[in-house]
Design a protein around this nucleic acid. Structure first.
Length: 1066
RNA sequence: GGGCCAAUAGCUCAGUCAGGUAUGAGCGCUCGGCUGAUAACCGGGAGGUCACCGGUUCAAAUCCGGUUUGGCCCA
């Protein structure tokens, strides 16, 4: 890129993006930046892999933008950062999408289509989605190793999962066991509890009588799942709950019911009884051991009737609600299962994985459980056991992928028994730093404390096959099972001849492999891993460990991961669990936990509901850099963000200001052939003026502040500091202050010093901006440095504050001076005297010594900024002799206080003029005027300051600024000359003249006195406007003339003509 | 149903941990100014029941309890 080349007037994100993307390609900017840091200290960042089932939404975009910013920042700090992106490509969500595409209903369709074909379809679906995501990420400038992402479907990655699982197994943390699980009957697999979504459904609500075996009467239970009654094994009571023996009566028939005392009335009513009597009360404890008859004994001959079944037990899940007696089926409900286990009861589950009853369900065998509800109710009714039959609307779980109502059943599943290492998990938590810290200590810790064993098996196809081979007639002991951790181990062991390097670990390839030992044949268990296990091994999967052992020892564990807060129970947890199970350590050292991307109105985004803001649209509207700036300006620690179009647009405007600041000096530097390489800051140190020193000091302060914020993972605060420096300090103050120096034609050390200063500031700013807005930073940097800099701004070192340029006193001085200046500008405005016109004097009445020092040290600067001939300073405690104070009386207070004298006092007060702002002075003035001695209070009056005519004053934080706008001939001379200059400049501009082009000018002023004043300043006008000659109006035959009727009271006419022929307009 | 987090100007947010006048910030709006950075820039102004209810305190946006709304997680 050519140095100081001409740039467009306006920052246009689109063209900048286009150019920079091409440029990056052309010079291999990413590769060279990575190479540039190859010898740096290792920094192991691990990318949480997005799931490949859709385009990048705003949340993913925020996440990747944060990652990109931190990776760029760390690189600039010198680190050799691991930046391998990852993609999570297995799992049920993809299977169901493919099933939809292929119009499949259930597993049978898949089997008919062929498992291998189906898996191929899943693979190509995931590949397509990966390509789309990757394109999205690149579209907003994310630099990661796109050529070589880790993919959970690659043999190396799958092997990483196998290896981790094998390690866990070797620690004795793998077991098969029965568990009550949430099963999707359509997908025919267990799904994780966090994959269950809850919606309201209407279910049966039945009250059933369980006839007692050894005594009169029946237990009344309530359930919304009649289909679980066949599996009823016991009835649970609360040990401390009071139950009642109730004799009820209907149509002359009597019966005895047992239920909680508190609900007798309610249940009797539901049962439609005519009346009841409570015969006795007893505690739940007293009922323990009572036997009862299974209500569906005839229909389900295989029903539980083993030792200990069909009895009353206590359980802590009992609530006095409905009947206070809980139908318990350890073959279904999770709590029932746990209690059943505790009680040593056998587990009876007559329901298969597809939600239909098996043979053990007797009469109901073959029917779908929810369809069987009707029959069961009818059968219970027929036996007279249905006390009440209603419906009930409640939240019930559905499969997140296909919306099918889940069923709770007990099946054999594979587990990593993390509950065995809970203490270790909790200890390991402390080895990681979280930002924000509270997230770790509240939510995460609580979750880990309550985490159950991890069910890692799924009865599906598209996943990493579980690497367990079991012998025929396996007894369930893990010692008998074979677990393989690598392809090589497997290839060596199996009966078939396989090449480990060519082995695809997916089903069905591995399903056919068998192992024979001592005459026993081992075959693989058919399940695949829960997809959460895939990403849980990312910290070594990223390194292709164990198949490639070259980097693991140096890098592992991860230095940093960053994801949204939903990953607390997701990836943050799964990595802790897997890392601890396999390696005994938490696999990450720092966690940056950010929030969710919400809609501008605060609602969550939802693609299915069409409530989204699409990143692509934002980029099209405002550009990638402005979008990134917006995302990076949000607190990244735990808090959700609301997307804001307005704020994104504001970021675009701020970049435009930066763009203007950057292009402002270019024409001058070009014209003067300024060469930054030959002129360092140190070279011009002696020529620096106060504003230069100030802006350089501010730069150091900003750099120091930004460093602190970045270290605390608050890039948003660092960005604030940077942008307010650019907008407030550089654009609004520094550039304004140096404009005149840059306009100077001749060579001038002060001008060179300003060039060197601004150049330095801009170059550092581009580096500071690079992690945030990598595209525009590149463009600006390239233009500033040309061939002399790095090929890309992203190879720069992160600018560090240089104490040698820092001057806190000066910064504080200027801060105060800017307050004085603002007040002065306001005072001018009140006096209607524009800044173009000098004023004779500005008087600063200071309240404190610090302000005095600031003003005193920088009188010339303040004179220049306020266009004042002199600055007068009145120190604290001194009065400026030229103001007096008067009072405005408040009659509503004076009246009650002074009665009949009030009017006189008021007049005296209003007319008083005193030298100091005190009640005492006013009291004396009143005494002088009226002869009365009065006690005044603050409430009675309001002080007013009286300034001399033509002086106006405005208060500021450190005092009052007075501006004396009285005119003198010298001021008029200067003022009118500047009016003329300004108008001529405007006319030059309208002609589109080159900055250096010379003109001839005619000036006609309708007032002789003013005409003479202007003529006195022709030299100045000539210099400012590049006038080659002043001529009489009639000598100038030009269409470029303009008449101004009222310029500070006079009319004037200006004509202008370029000396050479005007340049062809382009 | 339970846990965690949030609610401050029209908008986006500081301030809340360590209670002490909201000179709150930027953007937007509005009035004025400037004019070789000019679709930029500068100044003035309007704009707040600090979500609601209650408590502690001389004093609460800030601490405590509850409610509402939103987000996430869990059931």
């Amino acid at each position: 890129m050519e140095r100081f080349a001409e740039v467009p007037d306006q920052y246009d994100p689109d063209t900048v993006e286009e150019r920079v993307f091409d440029y990056w390609d052309e010079i291999d900017a990413y590769e060279r930046t990575v190479e540039h840091r190859a010898d740096g200290e290792d920094y192991f960042f691990v990318d949480g892999p997005p799931y490949t089932s859709g385009a990048a939404h705003m949340g993913t975009t925020w996440n990747k933008t944060l990652k990109d910013a931190y990776i760029r920042y760390l690189r600039m700090c010198g680190y050799d950062v691991t930046d391998r992106p990852g993609y999570d490509m297995h799992g049920l969500p993809i299977e169901t999408k493919v099933e939809e595409q292929l119009d499949f209903e259930n597993k049978k369709d898949i089997e008919a289509f062929g498992m291998e074909n189906f898996i191929e379809e899943c693979k190509s679906f995931a590949e397509e989605q990966l390509a789309g995501l990757q394109e999205d990420f690149e579209s907003f400038g994310v630099w990661m190793d796109w050529e070589d992402p880790y993919r959970t479907v690659s043999p190396e990655y799958m092997e990483a999962a196998w290896w981790g699982f094998e390690q866990a197994h070797e620690r004795g943390l793998v077991e098969q066991g029965m568990r009550s699980i949430t099963q999707c009957p359509r997908c025919e697999t267990a799904i994780a509890k966090n994959e269950v979504e809850y919606h309201q459904v209407e279910d049966p609500s039945i009250y059933v009588k369980f006839d007692l075996a050894d005594r009169e009467g029946s237990l009344v239970v309530w359930t919304t799942t009649p289909w679980t009654v066949p599996a009823n094994t016991f009835v649970a009571v609360g040990g401390d709950v009071t139950y009642a023996k109730v004799r009820v009566e209907r149509d002359g028939d009597e019966e005895v019911l047992y239920l909680a005392s508190d609900v007798v009335e309610e249940v009797v009513q539901k049962g439609g009884y005519d009346g009841y009597t409570v015969e006795s009360e007893l505690s739940g404890e007293e009922m323990v051991g009572w036997g009862y008859d299974h209500p569906l004994a005839d229909a389900v001959p295989d029903h539980p009737d083993f030792d200990g079944a069909l009895q009353v037990y206590t359980a802590d899940y009992v609530e006095v609600d409905r009947t206070g007696l809980v139908h318990s089926a350890p073959g279904h409900g999770e709590e029932d299962f746990q209690r059943g286990r505790e009680l040593g009861l056998d587990i009876f589950c007559p329901v298969d994985g597809d939600g239909t009853y098996g043979d053990s369900a007797g009469r109901y065998a073959g029917s779908f459980v929810r369809d069987a509800n009707e029959d069961i109710r009818a059968d219970l009714d027929e036996k007279g056991l249905l006390l009440a039959d209603e419906t009930y609307v409640h939240d019930y779980g559905q499969c997140w992928r296909c919306d099918t109502d889940i069923v709770q059943i007990v099946t054999d599943q594979w587990f990593i028994t993390v509950s065995d290492i809970k203490d270790e998990l909790l200890e390991n938590i402390d080895d990681s730093e979280w930002y924000p810290a509270e997230a770790r200590d509240s939510r995460f810790r609580k979750f880990v404390e309550n985490s159950p064993d991890w069910n890692v098996s799924r009865q599906r196809y598209w996943g990493i096959p579980i690497p367990i081979w079991t012998p025929e007639d396996w007894d369930g002991s893990m010692e008998e099972a074979l677990v393989f951790g690598t392809r090589e181990e497997l290839a060596e062991a199996v009966d078939q001849d396989v090449d480990p390097d060519a082995l695809d670990l997916h089903r069905p390839t591995v399903d056919d492999l068998t192992v024979t030992r001592d005459g026993t044949t081992y075959s693989r268990v058919p399940d695949v891993f829960d997809v959460w296990l895939d990403s849980s091994v990312a910290s070594w999967g990223t390194l292709d460990y164990p198949s490639d052992g070259s980097r693991f020892d140096d890098l592992w564990p991860a230095d940093l991961i960053m994801e949204a807060h939903d990953q607390t129970r997701g990836w943050f947890w799964s990595q802790l669990g897997m890392g601890t199970a396999a390696l005994g350590e938490v696999p990450y050292e720092q966690v940056l936990m950010h929030g969710y991307a919400n809609m501008p109105d605060g609602r969550g985004m939802s693609k299915s509901k069409g409530i989204t803001v699409e990143p692509g649209e934002v980029i099209a509207q405002h550009g990638a850099d402005p979008m990134r700036l917006f995302l990076l300006s949000r607190n990244p620690q735990g808090e959700d963000m609301r997307f804001s179009w307005e704020e994104t647009e504001a970021m675009q405007r701020r970049l435009n200001i930066l763009w203007n600041v950057f292009r402002f000096p270019l024409p001058y530097m070009r014209m003067d052939g300024f060469s930054p390489d030959g002129v360092s800051l140190a070279d011009v140190r002696d020529d620096l003026e106060t504003v230069d020193e100030w802006v350089l000091s501010r730069l150091q302060s900003v750099e120091a502040e930004m460093a602190d914020h970045w270290a605390e993972f608050r890039q948003d605060r660092a960005l604030d500091a940077l942008l307010s420096f650019v907008v407030d300090d550089v654009s609004r103050f520094y550039v304004q202050a140096v404009r005149e120096r840059m306009w100077k034609e001749e060579d001038d050390p002060s001008k060179t010093a300003a060039y060197a200063t601004l150049y330095h500031v801009l170059r550092e700013v581009t580096a500071l901006l690079a992690p945030y807005a990598p595209l525009v930073a590149e463009e600006v940097y390239g233009n500033l440095t040309g061939e002399a800099g790095h090929p890309t701004v992203h190879m720069c070192d992160w600018p560090e504050a240089d104490a040698g340029w820092r001057d806190d006193r000066l910064e504080e001085d200027v801060r105060r001076l800017r307050e004085v200046e603002e007040a002065g500008a306001e005072a001018r405005q009140q006096a209607e005297r524009s800044l173009r016109w000098p004023v004779t004097r500005v008087v600063v009445v200071a309240d404190d010594e610090r302000t005095v020092d600031a003003v005193d040290r920088h009188r010339p600067l303040l004179r220049e900024r306020l266009n004042a001939e002199t600055i007068e300073l009145v120190e604290p405690g001194e009065d400026w002799g030229e103001v007096t104070y008067s009072a405005r009386a408040d009659m509503s207070v004076l009246g009650p206080a002074f009665g009949g004298d009030a009017a006189d006092v008021m007049n005296a007060l209003n007319e008083a003029e005193v030298d100091e702002q005190s009640l005492g002075a006013l009291e004396r003035a009143v005494a002088d005027a009226t002869g009365m001695t009065v006690d005044l209070t603050d409430e009675m009056i309001e002080f007013e300051t009286n300034t001399p005519p033509e002086v106006s004053g405005v208060e500021f934080g450190g005092g009052v600024v007075y501006v004396d706008t009285a005119l003198t001939e010298a001021i008029e001379r200067e003022g009118y000359a500047r009016e003329v200059v300004r108008r001529l400049q405007e006319m030059r501009k309208a002609l589109d003249l080159d900055i250096e082009a010379e003109v001839r000018v005619a000036i006609a002023v309708d007032d002789d006195r003013v005409a003479t004043l202007v003529r006195d300043r022709e030299g100045y006008i000539a210099e400012e406007v590049r006038v080659a000659g002043f001529v009489d109006d009639d000598e100038l035959d030009t269409p470029h003339r303009e008449r101004f009727e009222d310029v500070e009271g006079v009319a004037l006419e200006l004509a202008i003509e370029p000396v050479a022929a005007p340049p062809a307009s382009d």
